[in-house]
C-alpha cells in the first residue's frame, strides 16, 4: 500500500470509527443514531441558510488548521492559535473602525492588520524558543490568556466607551456580503471563505514550492541535520511561528470583519483555535487535508445545533463524537498497524 493512500485512508477510517462509536453512544443513551445523524446533516445542509452557516463556520477553522499545521511542519506545536486569533480579530476591527478609507484600501488594510497582530503574537514564542529554548507550548498557552484579557480590556476601555461590544465596522472594512447573505436566506456567510481557500493555496506554495518552505520543513524533519546543512534553524523557527500566527490572525479577522463585524468582550475562549489543533491533525498537516478536516468540523459544529431540536440528541453528544474522531486520529498508529497486518495477511 502506498504511503499516500495510507495517508488518506487513516483519517477517513478514523472519522468512520468516530461516527460508529458516536452511533453506539447514541444507541446506549437511548437515541436513534440514524435520526440523530439525519438531523445533523439536515442542520448542516438541509437548507441554503444552513449551508451558509456551515461554510461560515468552516472559514475560521481553515485558518486555525493552517496555522497549527504550518508550525507543526517545522516541528513546532502552536497551541497559541486561539490567542493569535483573538488579537487578529481585535486588530482588524480596530483598523476597521479607526480609518475612513475607500474599500479597496480599507478592507485589505484591516485584514492585514489582523494578520500582523497574529504574527506578532506568534513571534514572541518563536523568538523565545529560538533564543532561549523556552518551550513554545508553554509560552503559547500563556499568551492565550494574555490575549484574552488584553482584548477584553481593549474592547472595553480603548475601542469602545466602556461597552460590552465595539460598534460595527463600516461597510468599507467589512467582509460581509449582502449577495451571499441573500443567497442563503440571511445566514452569516461572508466573503472570508474565498480568503480561506486562497490562504490554503498560499500555504501549499510556501511550504512545497519555495526554498524557504523547504528549509522550514527540513528543520521540522531534523533540526541538527538542517543546521549541519547550513540552514539557520533559529531563523526558521521564528519565521514559522510568525507565519503560523499570521494565519491565525487572519482567522480572527474573518470573525471580526465577517461573521460578527465587531469585537466584543469574550467570556471565554472561542474554542476555534483549539479545534484548529484537531483540524490540522486530522488533515495530516497538508493544505487540502486541512480544508477537508475544517469542512468536517464545521459541518459537525453547525449540524450539532440542530440535533437537540429535531432528534432530542444533546449537543454534548456531538462533542463526544468529535472527541472520538480525534481519539481515533491520535491513535492512528493502531489503524496503520492493522492496515499493514491486513496487507501482509492478504499476500
Amino acid at each position: 500500500m502506498s504511503s499516500r493512500l495510507q495517508a488518506i485512508l487513516v483519517p477517513v477510517i478514523s472519522v468512520l470509527l468516530g461516527l460508529i462509536a458516536g452511533a453506539i453512544v447514541m444507541l446506549v443513551s437511548g437515541f436513534n443514531p440514524i435520526e440523530g445523524y439525519g438531523a445533523l446533516l439536515r442542520g448542516a445542509f438541509g437548507d441554503t441558510f444552513y449551508i451558509g452557516e456551515t461554510i461560515r463556520q468552516i472559514t475560521p477553522y481553515i485558518f486555525a488548521g493552517l496555522a497549527v499545521a504550518f508550525a507543526f511542519r517545522t516541528g513546532l506545536f502552536n497551541i497559541g492559535v486561539e490567542g493569535q486569533l483573538l488579537v487578529g480579530w481585535i486588530a482588524s476591527v480596530w483598523v476597521g473602525l479607526a480609518f475612513d478609507l475607500p474599500k479597496f484600501i480599507h478592507l485589505p488594510m484591516a485584514v492585514l492588520a489582523g494578520a500582523a497582530a497574529g504574527a506578532i503574537w506568534g513571534f514572541v514564542p518563536g523568538f523565545l524558543k529560538a533564543r532561549l529554548r523556552v518551550h513554545e507550548v508553554i509560552v503559547t498557552i500563556m499568551m492565550n490568556y494574555i490575549a484574552l484579557h488584553l482584548v477584553n480590556y481593549l474592547v472595553r476601555y480603548v475601542i469602545s466607551d466602556e461597552q460590552n461590544t465595539t460598534v460595527a465596522v463600516p461597510p468599507s472594512a467589512s467582509l460581509k456580503s449582502p449577495f451571499l447573505e441573500n443567497l442563503t436566506d440571511f445566514s452569516t456567510l461572508h466573503n472570508g471563505i474565498f480568503l480561506a481557500l486562497a490562504a490554503a493555496i498560499i500555504f501549499w506554495v510556501v511550504l512545497e514550492k519555495t526554498t524557504t518552505g523547504f528549509e522550514l520543513r527540513s528543520v521540522g524533519f531534523n533540526q541538527h541535520a538542517s543546521e549541519y546543512a547550513g540552514m539557520n534553524v533559529n531563523r526558521n523557527i521564528v519565521l514559522s511561528m510568525v507565519i503560523s500566527g499570521a494565519f491565525a490572525g487572519l482567522g480572527g479577522a474573518m470573525e471580526g470583519l465577517g461573521t460578527f463585524g465587531y469585537g466584543f468582550i469574550h467570556g471565554a475562549f472561542s474554542g476555534v483555535g483549539f479545534d484548529g489543533i484537531a483540524v490540522a491533525l486530522l488533515g495530516g498537516n497538508v493544505a487540502i487535508g486541512v480544508i477537508l478536516a475544517a469542512a468536517l468540523f464545521g459541518t459537525l459544529k453547525v449540524g450539532a445545533l440542530n440535533m437537540p431540536i429535531e432528534s432530542g440528541v444533546p449537543t454534548e453528544l456531538v462533542e463526544i463524537v468529535i472527541a472520538l474522531i480525534i481519539f481515533f486520529v491520535a491513535s492512528s498508529y493502531i489503524i496503520r498497524y492493522l492496515l499493514n497486518r491486513y496487507k501482509k495477511g492478504a499476500k
Binding site: E53, T188, S270, K301, I309
Partner: peptide, 17 residues
C-alpha cells in the same frame, strides 16, 4: 424548547433556527 449555544458564533445561527 431551548437552543443551547456552544460558542458566540452560535447565537445568530440558533436565533435563526
Amino acid at each position: 424548547n431551548y437552543f443551547q449555544s456552544q460558542g458566540d458564533a452560535d447565537y445568530t445561527t440558533n436565533l435563526n433556527t
